[in-house]
């Protein structure tokens, strides 16, 4: 494409045609051919006019005004040509909206003349047009889809749920443990921690062990044992617990009757 552009710029073929009075015109600006400045288009209402005079005795077979964008994509337009004395006057009037949508979205367009007959040739870039960013933003041009690699897509995973900082959890857990010890100490200060009625009786220990057994069963349930396993274990524990529990309660009842508690 760059080579094509280079060719466009440099391709002045030996020419017998003389081009004069060349102008590039919009509604607000007019430039002569070969001026370094570009014709600026800033509105979709603009009308691009290209006019020039060809000094020739015969009408050329080929007269085109060629627009080429930065990528070398070109489109040719045929101007109306009329004889005027010993010359031919060519005029092209092109509303901006009639430009190919690709050109409406191109920042710069080069204007060339291609004029030829069997004897003479003329091919030269005579000026340029700039579309303002505002005008480009109004363009409806969408590139055609071509077979090529598409942009990679990496799925963005949901973030992991936020949790409290472990150090804070440890502090609060410690406070919980301290509460337990505070409770024990407070019981001690109030004289509640005495074992005056202690009696070495296996049924008492069995009852306490069975109560601990319930807690252990529930803890294993929390760790992953099935509900059916848990129900089974509880069922096994229930009978001995009732039996040893009644023994213990009888003992406590006897103490109460005896005035020991």
């Amino acid at each position: 494409m760059k080579i094509q552009l280079l060719v466009l710029f440099l391709s002045t073929v030996i020419s017998a045609f003389k081009i004069t009075d060349g102008t590039l015109k919009s509604s607000k600006q007019e430039l002569g051919f070969f001026e370094s400045d570009s014709l600026r288009l800033n509105s979709t209402e603009e009308n691009l006019s290209v006019s020039f005079k060809i000094k020739s005795n015969t009408k050329p077979n080929q007269i085109f005004v060629k627009l080429t964008n930065e990528n070398g994509i070109e489109s040719s337009f045929k101007p109306t040509t009329k004889k005027s004395g010993e010359s031919y006057i060519s005029k092209l009037s092109l509303p901006f909206t009639k430009l190919p949508t690709l050109f409406q979205a191109s920042s710069k367009l080069f204007v060339s003349l291609v004029i030829a007959s069997e004897e003479d040739k003329y091919f030269e870039t005579v000026g340029s047009i700039e579309n303002t960013p505002y005008l480009i933003s109004k363009s409806t041009y969408k590139p055609t889809e071509k077979f090529q690699a598409k942009p990679e897509i990496h799925h963005i995973f949901n973030e992991a749920p936020q949790t409290v900082d472990p150090s804070i959890a440890v502090v609060f857990s410690f406070l919980s443990i301290m509460t337990f010890f505070t409770l024990i100490v407070s019981w001690g200060f109030n004289g509640a921690l005495n074992f005056g009625n202690f009696k070495f009786d296996l049924s008492h220990f069995a009852f306490i062990a069975l109560i601990i057994g319930y807690e252990v069963t529930f803890f294993f349930y929390y760790l992953g044992d099935s509900i059916f396993t848990t129900i089974g274990r509880v069922a096994i524990l229930t009978g001995p617990t009732v039996w040893f529990g009644s023994r213990l309660l009888n003992y406590l009842g006897e103490l109460r009757v005896a005035g020991q508690r």
Binding site: S173, F180, L183, N194, F195, N197, I208, E215, L252
Partner: peptide, 21 residues
């Protein structure tokens, strides 16, 4: 931690309740 503390406190309470005078 709180669950374990409650469990431990419950066992202590049980023992104390049985043998307290």
């Amino acid at each position: 931690t709180s669950s374990v503390v409650v469990f431990a406190a419950w066992i202590v309470f049980l023992i104390v309740f049985i043998y307290i005078k």
